[in-house]
Design a protein around this nucleic acid. Structure first.
Length: 279
DNA sequence: GAACGGCACAGTGTCTCTAT
DNA sequence: ATAGAGACACTGTGCCGTTC
């Protein structure tokens, strides 16, 4: 039994004319590099895989991706197609009973999404996988819901960092080091079941509600029977948003309605202000 | 039977983090 | 920049029991 630790670099669509990111719903992240490390059962490196993938969905490298990964269009333009690299990658995996190891579950999801996009067969891909990030978060006692980054994990383990991050092969290498260092009997492979993201679960920009400030200010103008100053507008805006949080409702008011009382007893009280400015 | 409250649960929105 | 996950807070809804 061997471990296949892998990592991908992705590209996204970028509209140069309008300076905007766009995405194909079927495949928002196109794989442009596959890097992998093969480990034996004692976590010794026995093989490596590294290949760029010629972009087909998004023909240019997204500036954000280019800046972070240092991948330029020149590096990938003559690279083999995804189907060709995928075929080689499956050869590298070699055995269906090997265990796939990945930093976060996102890479696996995107792998399957890319495979589905090109209608390629998944037969031969191992079903068992280890999400190293998940186990690392537990290992470092990260608060629930807060997953640790790869670089942080490597730093916390005081491992040598002689390779650049955000390179598929290097990141796979660092992931394999982390796995080797945190591995214990509690680290058990899980079965990966690909579930396509339901479009209605993702937040759509069109359904997001906006505050009708014109009507809101007009209403206050009528109530106060005067024009509003810029300070008035700021206060109204803030009060409107804070009001929606119910943060200044106190027990006495809550007890008047049983429904609210129940809700408050069920929910943990928050500390401090509930209203925060959005990023 | 209608109205209401208690309760449980599903759905939704927000925040914060990660990934590229 | 966008996408996604997980935690949490809150809302809506349906079922059931109680009261009038």
């Amino acid at each position: 039994m061997e471990y296949i630790v892998f990592d991908f670099e992705f590209n996204q669509g970028f509209d140069k004319e309008n300076n905007k990111t766009f995405s194909d719903e079927k495949c928002p992240f196109e794989i442009i590099q596959i890097g992998a490390i093969k480990l034996d059962s004692n976590f010794n490196i026995i093989d490596r895989f590294n290949s760029f993938v010629k972009p087909n969905i998004y023909k240019d490298i997204h500036p954000f991706v280019g800046k972070m990964t240092h991948i330029t269009i020149d590096k990938v333009i003559d690279a083999p197609s995804f189907s060709s690299v995928y075929k080689d990658f499956k050869k590298f995996i070699s055995n269906k009973s090997n265990i796939m190891c990945v930093w976060g579950s996102g890479d696996l999801k995107e792998l399957y999404r890319n495979i589905n996009y090109y209608s390629l067969p998944t037969k031969g891909l191992p079903k068992l996988y280890i999400n190293v990030q998940q186990y690392a978060s537990v290992y470092f006692n990260n608060p629930t819901g807060q997953s640790i980054g790869l670089q942080n994990a490597v730093q916390m383990l005081q491992l040598e960092q002689d390779k650049a991050y955000h390179d598929a092969l290097n990141d796979a290498y660092y992931t394999s080091l982390v796995l080797k260092n945190i591995y214990n009997e509690n680290v058990v492979p899980d079965t990966y079941i690909y579930t396509p993201v339901k479009p209605n679960r993702t937040r759509s920009k069109t359904s997001k509600k906006k505050v009708d400030y014109a009507s809101l200010f007009e209403e206050f103008k009528k109530i106060l029977d005067r024009d509003l100053t810029s300070d008035d507008r700021k206060i109204i805006d803030l009060a409107y948003k804070m009001g929606k949080t119910n943060q200044f409702l106190i027990d006495d008011i809550i007890e008047t309605t049983n429904k609210s009382k129940k809700k408050c007893s069920k929910s943990k009280p928050r500390n401090g202000l509930k209203y925060k400015k959005r990023r």
